[in-house]
């Protein structure tokens, strides 16, 4: 820092003396554009430093009202992240969602359809518990959901996925079971 200040002061003094015509400093013609370039580069560097993380204290936000937790939002987030194409933890998240939905589905079928847990598991595996083939395909390896060419294209192009769609249909079918009381 000190060296830079000394250098700067010296340069200004020499400049002033040279302007007054006391001494003549002969510089190559390329020196002036070089100085200009250096100034621009240092300016860009300073802008980059300024846009970095700020050490300014965090200000309070009095308008921010506390918001309540909405039951189910955590599941929605999990479903979204599990459906993201190529995510590292995606498969374990999908497994967790499948387990949770299966527990709920067995509970629903035993309570509302009068199945034993074994029967419920069989019906889920066979896909006979609902009329909705997309919902049935979620728990079953034998049932294939109808996927149109357009959907296939959409699933490959966006974060929407077949898994997400089947899970949504499965939850919908379970909700209808509960609402219908059957």
């Amino acid at each position: 820092m000190r060296a830079r200040v000394v250098l700067g002061t010296l340069a200004v003094l020499v400049g002033l003396v040279a302007t007054a015509g006391v001494v003549s400093v002969s510089l190559p013609p390329s020196f002036v554009p070089l100085v200009g370039l250096a100034a621009v580069v240092i300016a860009l560097q300073a802008v980059r430093d300024l846009s970095g993380p700020s050490d300014a204290p965090i200000l309070p936000e009095p308008e921010r009202r506390h918001v309540a937790t909405v039951p189910g939002d955590a599941f929605d987030d999990l479903l979204t992240s599990a459906s993201l194409y190529g995510r590292v933890d995606g498969s374990s998240d999908r497994l967790a969602i499948r387990d949770r939905l299966e527990t709920v589905a067995i509970d629903v079928l035993t309570r509302y359809d009068g199945d034993t847990p074994e029967e419920a598991r069989t019906r889920l595996a066979e896909g006979t518990w609902t009329d909705d083939p997309t919902a049935a395909a979620f728990f079953s390896s034998t049932v294939e959901a109808d996927v149109s060419f357009l959907d296939r294209f959409r699933f490959s192009a966006t974060s929407d996925s077949q898994f997400r769609r089947e899970a949504a249909h499965a939850v919908g079918a379970l909700a209808r079971h509960v609402e219908g009381g059957r």
């Binding site: 909405v70 039951p71 189910g72 939002d73 955590a74 599941f75 929605d76 987030d77 479903l79 939905l101 709920v104 509970d107 629903v108 309570r111 899970a167 949504a168 939850v171 919908g172 379970l174 909700a175 509960v178």
Partner: peptide, 23 residues
């Protein structure tokens, strides 16, 4: 009842709550 929303998670929360009520 806080589970009246229409997203997948909210419907699941509604199903789970209904199961608890019946239990």
């Amino acid at each position: 009842d806080p589970t009246v929303g229409g997203t997948v998670g909210q419907r699941l929360a509604n199903v789970e709550r209904s199961l608890r009520c019946s239990a």
